[in-house]
Amino acid sequence: MFEIFTELATWLVVDVFGLSKATKLGDALHFFIEDTTKIFFLLLVMIYAIALLRASMNVERVRDYLAGKNKGVGYLLGSSFGAITPFCSCSSIPVFLGFTSAGIPVGITMSFLITSPLINEVAILLLLSLLGWKFTLLYIVVGMSVGILGGAFLDAIKAERWLQSFAAKALARGQNSSAGLQSQGINTLSFKERHNYAKNEMLEIFGRVWKWVIIGVGLGAALHGFVPDGWIQQHLGDGQWWSVPAAVLLGIPLYSNATGVIPIMESLIKQGLPIGTTLAFCMSTVAASFPEFILLKQVMQWRLLAVLFLLLLSAFTLIGWIFNLLSPFI
């Protein structure tokens, strides 16, 4: 069903602009037009559809649900909710404190917060349409595992010792008062309310991500058209061990959300970059960013921030190595 976008791109590039697809410019332009039109179309349709379904989902209900769950299932649930609950990254501090003051262990809260930027409906949609269902499934499993294991590790080392003192006090208060929560109850929404919510979500998310799509696809197109064919394959194609930590380090100063990075992933994989190296680079770009860490400083001491940072970097490096090893079997 996506051929129409390929044909549209061919028509524009060949018939309207009079370029040949055999030229570098024509090829790059074709990639750019095909991907942006396809992604924009999918975003508008799917964000609306998904928002319609999850209209009554919000962080407050997730918190009420997670409070009092035992740790084993807590990490899994925290990570799953992180993948499906919408919240703006500018809310991550209030969300962290809201969870903490409800007595939810730091590890479960972090499972939620680590998974959230890695997996969301826009990311899944893009992966499905650009890289296929196998890769998408792999990406989801890996992203959730990082959240789950990361959270469990933070609890195992008693990370709550290194919270800022007011956050630590709120956690202790929350754990001591079992009845402290005012649950909001289940609010049933009429179809009209759902439609309004979905329409607002669609416009808001689209307004936020369209420029990332342009930038991401633009860079992907540049890679596609202008990096000499075979260069990446030849130099990095064997999954040399150092290329993975190098990719992770390169991803840190680059700050993007999943929407911008996925078209770049597509282009890198098509150019022959091994799957593990690509995953490591992209996850590091999305989940380990300096602006986010500076925000977290408000609730965490430097020590915990450093631990979290190292934890994410080693996790992404490990993921890269494992997938490069396994890639012949995928």
């Binding site: 962080v59 407050e60 919240f87 703006c88 809310s91 209030p94 404190l97 809201g98 003051s101």
Partner: peptide, 9 residues
């Protein structure tokens, strides 16, 4: 913000 119990800003 925490004291007001607010998580979504």
């Amino acid at each position: 913000i925490m004291e007001y119990g607010v998580m979504s800003t």
